[in-house]
Amino acid sequence: MAAIKEWFGLYNVILNWIKTNWGEGAMEDYSRHIAHSCFKEEIGAIRSGGLKEIESRLVCPMRKDGGMVDAESTASQCIICVRKCPSLQFNSISANPNFKNMKDSCEFDFCVNEVIAQECGLVFKGEMLDDGCRWFFFAGENPGGDL
């Protein structure tokens, strides 16, 4: 199915509504709930297949949406660089004034990734870039300390 990119705007409407009504803590609770309830299959696959499964489970869907994403995996870490984020790209050119890029939409992804990592015995760290972001999944302790 061709990516229906208007749905990126819909994610933002929902996140913004939750944050406006109940604050950042509620948005984090919601993100964690979505991670636990909607990403069970991904968690199972990464648990059994290890870090190399992250590319097929988390990166490929972004590429299907038109994202430009690099991924590099070793036995102990997987580093993903989102060079062109499909959500940020769509919302920045949408004619709908309600589809605004919001920092919270990236925090939703970071929170989901953090839950997936925790459930798989990994450590996740996220870093914002100008047009995208970087995701770091480490097996066990982060050997590099602060990013």
Binding site: A3, Y11, I34, C38, P61, P86, D109
Partner: peptide, 13 residues
């Protein structure tokens, strides 16, 4: 967030 996962997230939301 991806369009690919949107419908299941919408339902769960």
């Amino acid at each position: 967030m991806t369009v690919q996962n949107f419908i299941v997230i919408y339902n769960e939301t």
